[in-house]
Amino acid sequence: MARHVREGFKNLWRNGWMTFASVSAVAITLLILGVFLTVALNAQQMANYVTRQLEIEVFLKPSISDAQGEQVAQAVRQLPGVASVQYFSKEDGFAQLRRDISPQYRALMDGLSAKNTLPVKLVVKATSPDELLPLGQELRRLPSVYQVNDGRSVVDKLLHLFNVLRNLGLVFVVGLTVTAMFLIANTIKITIFSRRREIEIMKLVGATNWFIRWPFLMEGMMIGVLGAALPYALLVWGYASIYQRMSGTFFILPFPLVPASDLAIRLAEVMFGLGIAIGVWGGAMSIRRFLRV
């Protein structure tokens, strides 16, 4: 086996530019795949996180006053499946907004405090996750309710958007994978051609077919591994630095990101797995068509 690895490396080296082109093709394919995978894993994480929450945000119509809002809150408390209702007055909403907004606009907001048109907000907690959907439907039917964020609706919207993006990405990745495979097949075809004399002699003196095939499969595999290593390093490094920033106090996301170490493992599995698969498959195509052993 050591010999096959050595011969494989020799082939890579002798084919300099073709190797470079193949490795680049694999790298670009896997980079795009890796980005999509990162987004997908986080979207999944978000979906899980949001649907696990038992809270529903209910915004009343802006015309509803604080006093009327209290009455609505009372009514909601009576609905089946409700565990608790938290009441946020217009003032609370204004204070919250003032806190979240960047300091340079705070003065501007202070001037607006008399004309507070923010809605009353109720945070309704359900008794179980199963109650979330019917409860959301129920709340939407109330006449004084303006909008209901029951988590699932947000998730559904995001998931839909994400699905479209993912399908687009998949088409892209499949196309690029095929391209990469053909490039690898071509590279190995050139190797086979440049070593046809050696192969002829190997056949004549009785080398087994697998002995002849191995170096070329190795070459394909190494192209795959090299092509995976670069985008992998880039993605893991990039994600780790984004993760570090996001999870700091500077910016608060509505859900936690997938930890960088978990992502690194998943990415390694998929990217190296596919890289090797593309490489070996490309090699196998050439071997079947041009080696005839």
Binding site: K203, L204, V205, G206, T208, N209
Partner: peptide, 10 residues
Amino acid sequence: KDRKVPLLRR
């Protein structure tokens, strides 16, 4: 068989 050819050639 094809895979036995190497034995002959040896």
